[in-house]
């Protein structure tokens, strides 16, 4: 943590700069660089051109879900991230359970889709794969408590909380394979409002929604998406399939 151990406000400003340039790019209109996207149901996301231009590391609209095989310790098996291709639409997110901020929201978003899938009869058409990048702390029993706290329904056999075996493996899977950045921080830091808290990682807030063919329909990043946004998108894909 030396590269960006400087004040979060600096980083925040950088982020705002990027966001600001996106507005300009959007206003400048379509860059016309992409081909048609026959592999997806959803329309092109907002600011797609900017995201393409930014060359982000995570897969975006129309790209394939990366492959990695990771243990699902609560189910006593391993799961390959692409193993549901042809069978289920998939949702991924990347979390650590000590996270006080974004991660509970990311879990909640997946939970909302799970609840909606039960309510609207598509539970056997979706799979959920939250992946921890803090295996040292997130032991199987910690993950079990976390699922419990969030009200995850475990009897439906479509929820796979994944735990890379080691920090090195977490790095490979989460950062190198999925392009979701995380970095260990000092244990106690102050946020921009001066509140001290215990934050073990800084990380990209990322949810991926991929269709049955294994193509990413949406990569939600930046702000934690509103649950209704993802529920609507998931329904649209289920119905449009």
């Amino acid at each position: 943590m030396n590269r960006h151990s400087n004040a979060p406000s600096f980083d925040r400003r950088r982020f705002l700069t990027v966001a600001g340039s996106g507005v300009v790019a959007t206003m400048a209109g379509c860059l016309g660089l992409r081909g048609g996207n026959d592999n997806v149901v959803l329309d092109e996301p907002d600011a797609y051109d900017r995201t393409v231009e930014a060359d982000v590391d995570w897969p975006i609209y129309g790209e394939q879900i990366p492959t990695a095989t990771v243990p699902a310790p609560l189910l006593d098996r391993s799961v390959t991230t692409t193993e549901f291709t042809g069978e289920r639409h998939t949702l991924f997110t990347f979390i650590f359970t000590r996270c006080p901020g974004a991660c509970p929201g990311l879990m909640a978003v997946l939970r909302h889709v799970q609840a909606d899938s039960v309510e609207n009869d598509y539970a056997d058409e979706v799979a959920f794969m939250p992946i921890t990048f803090d295996p040292e702390h997130d032991t199987p029993s910690v993950l079990e408590d976390y699922e419990q706290r969030h009200g995850v329904e475990r009897s439906l056999e479509h929820w796979f909380t994944l735990r890379p075996e080691t920090p090195e493996r977490a790095q490979e899977v989460v950062e190198e394979t999925f392009g979701c950045m995380f970095e260990r921080t000092e244990d106690a830091e102050s946020d921009s409002e001066g509140e001290t808290m215990d934050m073990a990682f800084m990380h990209t807030s990322l949810v991926l929604l991929a269709n049955k063919d294994g193509y990413v329909e949406r990569a939600y990043t930046g702000d934690v998406p509103a649950p209704s946004t993802i529920v609507d998108d998931a329904r649209t894909i289920v119905e449009g399939w």
Binding site: P8, S9, F10, P100, G101, E189, D191, S205, T221, G222
Partner: peptide
Amino acid sequence: AGAAALSGTAL
């Protein structure tokens, strides 16, 4: 930097 900002604002 972006990631840090995100978490930073989430703190």
